[in-house]
Design a binder for these strands. Sequence first.
RNA 1: GGCCCGUUGGUCAAGCGGUUAAGACGGCGGCCUCUCACGCCGCAAACAGGAGUUCGAUUCUCCUACGGGUCACCA
Length: 500
Amino acid sequence: MDGKWFDDMEAKIPRGGVRTRFAPSPTGYMHVGGLRTALYAYLIAKKEGGTFILRIEDTDSARFVEGAAEGIFSSLRGASLEWDEGPLVGGPAAPYTQSERKELYRPYAELLCDSDKAYYCFCEHISHDERRADTQTVPAPVTSDPCRDLPRGEAVRRAADGGSHVIRMKAPREGTTSFRDEIFGVITVENASLDDMVLIKSDGMPTYNFANVVDDHLMGVTHVVRGSEYLSSAPKYNLLYDAFGWDIPVYITVPPIMRDKHNKLSKRHGDASYGDLLEQGYLPGAIVNYIALLGWSPGGERELFTLPELIEAFDIGGISKSPAIFDLEKLTYFNGSYIRSMTPGEFSAVAEPYIRRAVTSPDISVPEIAELLQPRCERLPEIPGKLGFIEQLPYYDLRLFEHKKSKCDASVALDMLLSALVVFQTAPDWSPDTIRSELTALADSLQVKNATLMWPVRIAVSGMEVTPGGAVEICRILGRYETLRRVGAAIERLSAEVSI
RNA sequence: GGCCCGUUGGUCAAGCGGUUAAGACGGCGGCCUCUCACGCCGCAAACAGGAGUUCGAUUCUCCUACGGGUCACCA
């Protein structure tokens, strides 16, 4: 490759403003930690009116999972993290999938070989496991002395003869390398501890480490957000940037999200992925809001933020260094809070399918039921379980009618229901207001507390100790006919028992 | 094991030399109330340990302990 080719590449690099990227490898589902990394990258870009890039890092064909990239696309979009450049939408640095950029990487590696900063290595590959088993306790950095010192001409000849090889970085063996991370500060390591990392694999594909650096440069990425598992690789990246003479991006290393004190959140251990959470009835907005706060704090007391509000509030100074444990209970609280903050119309619309699961009758009013449900549900899938009483005929366990706080027992219940039955028959209409005023007037005239009357009525029409809403609401929803029927049935049952 | 990083209530976390050490989830108690929720009020609950530096350390330094990351032709 001649100098002009490289000049052309440089000329195409998008410049200007903050440019961040999310660079997942398509090896499975979208996990919560990945989503948060994407979120932070998105927020950092948007905060400055910059560009959020999506890049697919599929350099390991062995680990490629069919459909995984599509899952990433839909998850990000579902979470409203729209990328400005990347697959599906294109952009000035296209393509954004590394397997489609394969030809780009080798010339850059060769460039380093030409300047004696990298070399062809013909050594036999020792697998990760073998290395571990072999070296037991003290694995040394991977280097290859014979190949490192092989004259360039000879190396090229061997390669031309079909010699299987990789291209390795020639890491310095003395001195130290430092890098600066916005979160962790300046970290310095001994060069002697650094590998001669592989840049180009024997199959011609670049390694993650190399492709990452080349692409970040070629795509004009200014801020690199990634998990702390990359912290110890960072010095090697700087070595590469230096070797090329490229500007080093701002590193923003985020702490991991844990399942418990010892383990990272992972699907392998049965932890929920982003998709699982959606299936469990968690709202994208609530998930995004919650995970934003895992490892980052806005500083104040506020916790509830919409995505635009997060953009406004986000500041990398608030990112924490230590791991955060994922707390499903708190996410559940957030979800309930999001549900409650919807308008009644919005909630009714999202709740309707779940309501329909429990209620088949076309006569019932979905908005009225939704109104009762909204403050009482934290996840939509809970809904059907709360509505069983509507179409299930109550079974009257007499003990249900006993409630000492309401001063009610079976005998009192019978009296109350007898009176209530008349009121229900004669009520001028079946509006909630009417039902309520009729019943409270009745309690008044009977000289009992509202509770003494309401308790048995609610039990009679629902057969349940716990219902979403009170007697008035339940009667209203069931309709006059069904209410009378159920109150009548309860009276029958009670009179059979109480008279004895 | 080497190297790097971290450590405030059970959990998320504020704090950036002087505070009665916020707030939230969860827990507990109460109010509201026809149940359950919602809402409101309150209670319990933390600076890992030890040396320094300083008039004064949760805040700065070092050591120890504990935890995490990493040590691949995986990302």
